[in-house]
């Protein structure tokens, strides 16, 4: 245990923690998107998927708690590292210049915190039913309380909600487009041939994930995916 704490407290140990938790969160985001895509296959598909997840019972709680631990580690380590980075430069330059750092890389703390705020809203909205109880009730009204389709389509028919989700995906795109290539380098992957590929792949994966989620919200808003009867 002291070994692990020592490792976490070191600069590179902290970076590796960011990379590993970031990779796991990325895996979650991919799985989450694949599940969401069932929306396109109609009410039965996504509702059956939701029921399957709920029927996991205790396993679902293991996954939820695991995800929470990973997430908290990611955020706590991010705060520790970035405050150390601020302290490492007590006086700023009066003339600042940027040579090759991308906009995404320079806004990781901001994009990360925005994702955090969105995530809290997202849970309050769809998981706990606090922000729009009328949408949440639609879910409960379905067979055995799994009419996720009705809840999601009712929500995204509201332009304010749909556009909030799309905006959050733009921010997630920024976070992941730097995050994916950053984690590869942190984990020691640097190669004349593969590094340029990883950079492109990182951009592409971020675009696919954020774009996929945004597409779902927009397709309900524009009526490509019809609301529940």
């Amino acid at each position: 245990m002291t070994w692990l704490c020592d490792f976490w407290r070191s600069s590179i140990g902290g970076k590796v923690t960011m990379a590993v938790t970031g990779l796991l969160l990325f895996g979650f985001v991919v799985a989450h998107l694949l599940g969401n895509l069932k929306l396109l296959a109609g009410p039965d598909s996504i509702n059956a998927y939701a029921k399957m997840l709920h029927d996991l019972g205790p396993l679902l709680w293991v996954a939820r708690i695991g995800l929470l631990v990973i997430f908290v580690l990611h955020v706590v380590t991010a705060i520790r590292l970035s405050s150390a980075n601020k302290a490492a430069r007590p006086v700023r330059y009066s003339k600042e210049a940027t040579m090759q750092a991308t906009l995404a890389s320079r806004s990781m703390v901001l994009s990360g915190l925005t994702v955090l705020v969105f995530l809290i809203y997202h849970l309050l909205h769809f998981t706990l039913g606090v922000t729009n109880p009328e949408h949440f009730q639609k879910k409960a009204a379905g067979a055995q309380g799994f009419d996720v389709y009705a809840m999601v389509t009712a929500s995204f028919a509201n332009p304010a909600i749909a556009l909030t989700y799309v905006a959050a995906q733009v921010v997630l795109f920024f976070h992941l487009s730097h995050g994916m290539q950053s984690l590869a380098h942190t984990l020691g992957l640097h190669h004349a041939r593969y590094t340029p590929m990883i950079k492109k792949l990182s951009f592409l994966l971020a675009l696919l994930i954020a774009g996929g989620n945004a597409f779902l919200a927009l397709s309900v808003l524009t009526g490509i995916v019809k609301g529940a009867a």
Partner: peptide
Amino acid sequence: LVAQMDAEGFGNCTNQYE
């Protein structure tokens, strides 16, 4: 080397390559 680097109060790389 890493322990000494950390003790000196340098920051942590975020892979921006400046």
